[in-house]
């Protein structure tokens, strides 16, 4: 910094005998200039009133310097962590459950008969279900205890829902892929496409029914659909819903669901439930 406050101006400022415009100029400079702040401190030390006030204020501060606690800097990445971590699904318990379920599905997968006369890898059944359950658990207003307050915030609507959905997919998909690779169960693409379509359909339906109910409906439809397709056609190697031929259909469903979510995004601005059955008066 090339310009600094003159000694004359500093002492005028310290004593209060200074025009406002000059005081402003001094203050603007002090805010940015460490050297002049220190110079002003030296100047103030010669002023009985100021130096007394500064000296006498310190013990009151020093006596109250408790431990500082776990404070964190505010940043966009910290924001993401907090918003995602608050979801019940992000808790370790849920994560562990997801891993255990997938591991079981993968372990039992290839040999478990499902329906009549046909083998469906359990992984294919379970893997697309997990993201839906995860989204429901992490956002469903019946399960998120603080939903009432969240609904009153600007960031609590569709933004939070999408954020949580993405975080759930980020956890469940890799786990599913690994499980699939370990068991050597065919191409993961059919069930990945099914996963995507199911989660998006859940979100689209959620704009009408709320997340919890939407997840239940879509989950039940998935299981029923699989059972029916397995029972119906015993000649196929895989049930129609998990057949590679079904992939374009799943993608179409996904696109349609995205359109519905975009059109109905305002529905996420409000809670779908009353505050509390007891309290609704």
């Amino acid at each position: 910094m090339s310009w600094h406050v003159t000694g004359e101006a500093l002492s005028a400022y310290a004593s209060g005998r200074i025009a406002d415009s000059d005081a402003w100029s001094v203050e603007m400079h002090l805010t940015a200039c460490e050297r002049c702040r220190a110079a002003l401190a030296a100047e103030a030390a010669t002023d009985v009133d100021l130096s007394t006030a500064i000296r006498e204020s310190w013990p009151g501060i020093a006596a109250n310097l408790s431990s500082q606690g776990r404070v964190r800097r505010g940043s966009r990445s910290r924001e993401l962590i907090v918003l995602i971590a608050a979801g019940p699904a992000a808790r370790w318990a849920w994560f562990t459950a997801a891993v255990v379920v997938l591991a079981l599905a993968a372990g039992l997968g290839a040999v478990t008969p499902f329906g009549r006369g046909q083998e469906i890898p359990l992984l294919g059944v379970v893997a697309p279900l997990l993201p839906i359950l995860g989204v429901a658990a992490s956002y469903g207003s019946g399960l998120d205890d603080a939903h009432e307050v969240i609904a009153s915030t600007p960031g609590g609507g569709i933004r939070l829902l999408l954020l949580r959905s993405a975080s759930v997919l980020a956890v469940t998909l890799p786990v599913g892929l690994i499980a699939g690779a370990v068991t050597g169960y065919g191409s993961p693409i059919p069930w990945l496409a099914a996963s995507l379509a199911l989660i998006l359909t859940t979100l689209a339906l959620a704009s009408v029914t709320g997340v919890g109910r939407a997840a239940a409906i879509v989950g039940a439809a998935w299981v029923t659909g699989l059972a029916m397709s397995a029972a119906g056609d015993v000649t196929q190697a895989a049930p129609a819903l998990l057949d590679p031929d079904a992939v374009p259909v799943w993608l179409l469903v996904s696109v349609a669901a995205v359109a519905v979510v975009a059109l109905r995004r305002q529905a996420f601005n409000y809670t779908s439930l009353p505050a509390h059955p007891r309290l609704e008066n």
């Binding site: 606690g69 776990r70 404070v71 964190r72 924001e79 907090v82 918003l83 608050a86 019940p88 808790r91 998120d144 205890d145 603080a146 939903h147 009432e148 307050v149 969240i150 915030t153 600007p154 960031g155 609590g156 939070l160 505050a275 509390h276 309290l279």
Partner: peptide
């Protein structure tokens, strides 16, 4: 609200911070 849900495992600081972020 009268019945406000909270996350038992959150600290006071995390809880308040959570809503600071939600309030953008």
């Amino acid at each position: 609200p009268q019945q406000f849900g909270y996350y038992p495992r959150f600290t006071v600081r995390e809880f308040v911070e959570y809503f600071a972020w939600l309030k953008e």
